Simulated scan of single mutants.
Amino acid sequence: MARRARVFVVSGPSGVGKGTLVSLLRERVSCLGLTVSATTREPREGEKDGVSYHFMDDAEFDRRLAAGEFLEWAWVHAHRYGTLRSEVERVLAGGESVVLEIDVQGGLAVRSVMPDAVLVFVEPPSMAELERRLRGRGTESEEQVSLRLENARSEMERAAEYDVRIVNDDLERACSELQEVIHTYEMDGGPSQDVRDQARD
């Protein structure tokens, strides 16, 4: 059976470890392409337009947004960042799948534009464990921790809208499950019952 390149969206609350999970996944799966995000911030030293980011001013960002060229976008520290549809299509045309690590709102926005995108929600073993991880960072104030936990509860209420849910209680196991999800969707077009069961255990 021929392999089919797909778009995979990985979302989850802050502190769940999705960034670490996706980084480990990229080390293990060679057929994942990289997209270049767009941003309105100024280039930093050593960054190249079209390589590090697609740098653009607010007017160009607004124009492309109005033209429907973004799959999703968000404000981050007073600047806008977004995923251009053309970037995703470029990678897919090259036969590579795309993994987008974005928030729930962005993930559902991608689904509305690309209905066959595969949405994977990474969740913590419990809210108590998520709180422990957030406090263990030592980088947020009490107010910030409370806000992140509140946002996490809201995001987890929408987890049922995702295709697959993976509990990140062990990084190695979670990465293996995510690899299996990608392989299954690329080859079969949908998850096996085993993958569904693992994601919910």
Score class of each variant (00 low, 15 high):
1 M>H: 07
1 M>T: 09
1 M>I: 07
2 A>G: 01
2 A>T: 05
3 R>Q: 00
3 R>V: 01
3 R>P: 00
4 R>K: 15
4 R>L: 15
6 R>C: 13
6 R>N: 08
7 V>T: 12
7 V>D: 06
8 F>I: 13
8 F>Q: 10
9 V>A: 10
9 V>R: 10
9 V>Y: 07
10 V>G: 01
11 S>C: 15
12 G>R: 10
12 G>F: 06
12 G>V: 12
13 P>T: 05
14 S>V: 14
14 S>R: 09
15 G>T: 06
16 V>R: 05
17 G>C: 15
17 G>F: 15
18 K>V: 11
19 G>S: 14
20 T>L: 09
20 T>F: 03
21 L>D: 02
21 L>T: 04
21 L>I: 04
22 V>R: 04
22 V>F: 08
22 V>Y: 04
22 V>K: 06
23 S>N: 15
23 S>D: 15
24 L>C: 10
25 L>F: 12
25 L>V: 15
25 L>Q: 11
26 R>H: 09
26 R>K: 11
27 E>N: 14
27 E>T: 15
28 R>P: 13
28 R>M: 14
28 R>N: 15
28 R>V: 14
28 R>I: 14
29 V>W: 04
29 V>P: 06
30 S>W: 05
30 S>E: 13
30 S>A: 15
31 C>G: 03
32 L>K: 12
32 L>D: 11
33 G>C: 12
33 G>F: 08
34 L>D: 14
35 T>N: 01
35 T>L: 10
35 T>V: 15
36 V>Y: 02
37 S>Y: 06
37 S>V: 06
38 A>V: 14
38 A>L: 10
39 T>W: 13
40 T>G: 10
40 T>N: 13
40 T>Q: 10
40 T>R: 10
42 E>P: 03
42 E>G: 11
42 E>K: 14
43 P>I: 08
43 P>D: 05
44 R>W: 00
44 R>Q: 01
44 R>G: 00
44 R>P: 00
45 E>Q: 09
46 G>S: 07
46 G>K: 06
47 E>M: 02
48 K>N: 03
49 D>A: 06
49 D>H: 13
49 D>G: 14
50 G>S: 05
51 V>H: 00
53 Y>H: 12
53 Y>F: 14
53 Y>A: 14
53 Y>R: 09
55 F>Y: 13
55 F>W: 06
55 F>G: 11
55 F>M: 11
57 D>W: 01
58 D>E: 08
60 E>Y: 02
60 E>W: 05
60 E>D: 07
60 E>F: 04
60 E>I: 08
61 F>W: 02
61 F>G: 04
62 D>A: 15
62 D>V: 13
63 R>Q: 05
63 R>F: 02
63 R>T: 03
64 R>E: 10
65 L>N: 00
68 G>P: 01
68 G>E: 00
68 G>A: 01
68 G>F: 00
68 G>C: 02
70 F>H: 08
70 F>Q: 06
70 F>I: 07
71 L>R: 03
71 L>P: 02
72 E>H: 09
72 E>K: 05
74 A>D: 03
74 A>V: 07
75 W>N: 09
75 W>T: 13
75 W>Y: 08
75 W>P: 08
76 V>F: 12
77 H>I: 03
78 A>D: 12
78 A>M: 08
78 A>N: 10
79 H>S: 13
79 H>D: 14
80 R>P: 03
81 Y>Q: 07
81 Y>E: 07
82 G>H: 10
83 T>S: 06
84 L>H: 02
85 R>K: 06
85 R>L: 05
85 R>Q: 03
85 R>V: 03
86 S>V: 09
